[in-house]
């Protein structure tokens, strides 16, 4: 058998336990092949458990295992790093538990925090950087570790209680949707819930990084004076939290 065929058969054995493939690979006992298949599946299970400890705690071992097996069957790993294997687990949870947005959002929190943990390093904005800014042309640079999504449940409180090992609140829908952000300042990963206005403001920066455009968005939401005031307040908070890590202006 040539090498290409050999490797295709091995893949088929690992992913779908093809008996035809196993017969071509070995003659007689499949004990050795069984070890490879067990390693393959056990490792992926371990990766999902390690990537989503709070989802595991929330769902319990049996339900989590069922979801993980479903995910492993549908999503063979493709990247060179196992760190990205859990990337679409939120989608698997959404398909299996379509009426549990708290679980979907909890999965997002865990995944995004893990991505923030190893994102590129960034410096804080210094006072010198601020001294010469032309705010008409200024563009805000967001931290490479920043992840953002709309939130509909009290998942931030749930995640925090699970993480701190305190009493976990019942899942609830929020009165009004807002935003969730994760990012890293120094080596510390952070999670924060935002109101709808801050969420819209951060989202707008992904499309247009100009401070002036941010002001336009906030004026549209809040009116002229309140919008401009909120823009200044948000920018100050984002700079001190390490969410905005650079300001570039074109004189």
């Amino acid at each position: 058998m040539n090498l290409a065929r050999w490797q295709q058969d091995f893949r088929d054995w690992l992913t779908v336990a093809s008996n035809d493939a196993s017969h071509r690979l070995v003659h007689g006992s499949t004990t050795g092949l069984d070890i490879y298949q067990n390693n393959y599946r056990a490792q992926l299970m371990s990766v999902l458990e390690a990537s989503y400890p709070q989802v595991l705690a929330r769902l319990g071992a049996v339900l989590f295992r069922d979801a993980a097996i479903n995910h492993i069957d549908r999503h063979p790993p493709h990247a060179w790093t196992l760190d990205v294997y859990g990337e679409n687990f939120e989608d698997t949870l959404r398909s299996l538990l379509p009426h549990n947005p708290d679980v979907h959002e909890l999965a997002w929190v865990e995944w995004s925090l893990a991505q923030s943990f190893v994102a590129a390093d960034a410096d804080d904005v210094s006072n010198d950087d601020l001294a010469s800014v032309d705010w008409e042309t200024a563009e805000l640079q967001l931290a490479p570790s920043l992840h953002l999504r709309r939130v509909t449940t009290n998942v931030e409180a749930i995640w925090s209680a699970l993480y701190d090992d305190t009493e976990v609140p019942e899942s609830e829908m929020l009165d009004a949707s807002g935003g969730l952000i994760t990012w890293r300042q120094g080596t510390s990963c952070r999670l924060r819930q935002t109101d709808a206005t801050e969420y819209a403001a951060l989202q707008s920066l992904h499309e247009d990084a100009h401070f002036a455009s941010l002001c336009d968005v906030l004026v549209e939401h809040l009116g002229e004076d309140a919008g401009i005031a909120r823009a200044g307040e948000l920018l100050a908070n984002w700079i001190s939290a390490g969410i905005v890590i650079g300001i570039e202006s074109h004189h």
């Binding site: 295709q8 490879y36 393959y40 490792q43 992926l44 790993p77 493709h78 060179w80």
Partner: peptide, 8 residues
């Protein structure tokens, strides 16, 4: 192999 990675 292609887009499949066994990580073993």
């Amino acid at each position: 192999l292609g887009r499949f990675n066994s990580h073993d």
